[in-house]
């Protein structure tokens, strides 16, 4: 069926028409990162890095991104399963809607969240009325904003893994008398674990870098809602050196995340 011929190595040099734009593209992506490293105030870097503000923003970022990822796992895996396995009418439309936050400008996401979950929002008004609880300007608000933006990464990744998984194992489990829930837990979930891990890592990285939805929905207060990207943005206006330091920390985290995403995990993303 899929007996594709192995790509033959055509002799001779690489076509210039491809190599040149490829090199340009590579330079375009790398030069800003190199510039960031070149501009870094290396001599004062350690003292700035361990200043209270940076530590606070970093801690808040890590905590919020992690909680948001857990939230995405709890809601995203079932959603991915529904999209991959259930007979849903209009599944293509639902899948398209699920991925909207992926392409939506995050600020728009923040505005939407504010209009729905804000104190005067459709749902937020009830929360405030019944529980005296409102999300904007709280750390919980940051988590909600990050989860909103990051969840599609997890759903797509897990759904891809589910589609790639061999359904015969699930069928075998079913013929042996396992219910759907048991099958899901004992057969499906272990078989898609690499996809789940890849999705969770991507989701976490996206949540860590979230800016637009966070500043719009959760505002900006050091220690409560000022995550690293917000701190970078505000620091740029007063102390660009601090902004560079903060950016390097985020860059480092991103590189570590990508390096940890080994080939076999990414393969689940197809």
């Amino acid at each position: 069926m899929r007996s594709r011929r192995r790509t033959q190595r055509v002799g001779g040099r690489l076509p210039l028409v491809l190599v040149l734009p490829a090199l340009l593209g590579l330079a375009f992506l790398l030069i800003p990162l190199i510039g960031l490293l070149a501009e870094a105030p290396w001599s004062t870097l350690p003292s700035r890095l361990f200043s209270a503000d940076v530590g606070q923003a970093l801690r808040l970022s890590v905590v919020c991104a992690s909680v948001a990822t857990v939230l995405c796992l709890l809601l995203g895996i079932p959603l991915a399963w529904l999209l991959a396995r259930a007979e849903l009418p209009g599944r293509a439309v639902i899948r398209a809607l699920v991925t909207v936050p992926l392409v939506l400008p995050p600020v728009v996401g923040g505005v939407a969240l504010l209009l729905v979950l804000g104190r005067r929002g459709l749902v937020g008004e009830r929360l405030d009325l019944w529980f005296g609880f409102s999300l904007p300007f709280t750390t919980a608000g940051v988590i909600v904003a990050e989860a909103f933006v990051a969840m599609p990464f997890l759903v797509i990744s897990v759904e891809g893994a589910l589609r790639a998984a061999d359904p015969r194992y699930e069928e075998a489990a079913a013929t042996l008398g396992a219910g759907r829930w048991l099958t899901f837990r004992r057969v499906t979930l272990p078989s898609i674990a690499p996809g789940v891990v890849a999705g969770a890592v991507l989701c976490w990285a996206r949540a860590l870098g979230e800016f637009g939805a966070t500043i719009t929905f959760a505002g900006n207060l050091p220690g409560r809602t000022t995550t690293m990207p917000l701190a970078v943005y505000l620091a740029l206006e007063t102390d660009p050196d601090v902004a560079v330091v903060l950016s390097i920390v985020l860059l480092l985290v991103s590189v570590v995340v990508l390096a940890s995403l080994r080939e076999r995990w990414i393969s689940g993303l197809r």
Binding site: P136, I215, A218, G219, N220, L221, R224, L234
Partner: peptide, 14 residues
């Protein structure tokens, strides 16, 4: 404060 907004219009919007 509960939020320190990045410009006056953002504060006004809230």
């Amino acid at each position: 404060p509960d939020s320190l907004e990045q410009d006056v219009k953002a504060a006004l919007t809230k």
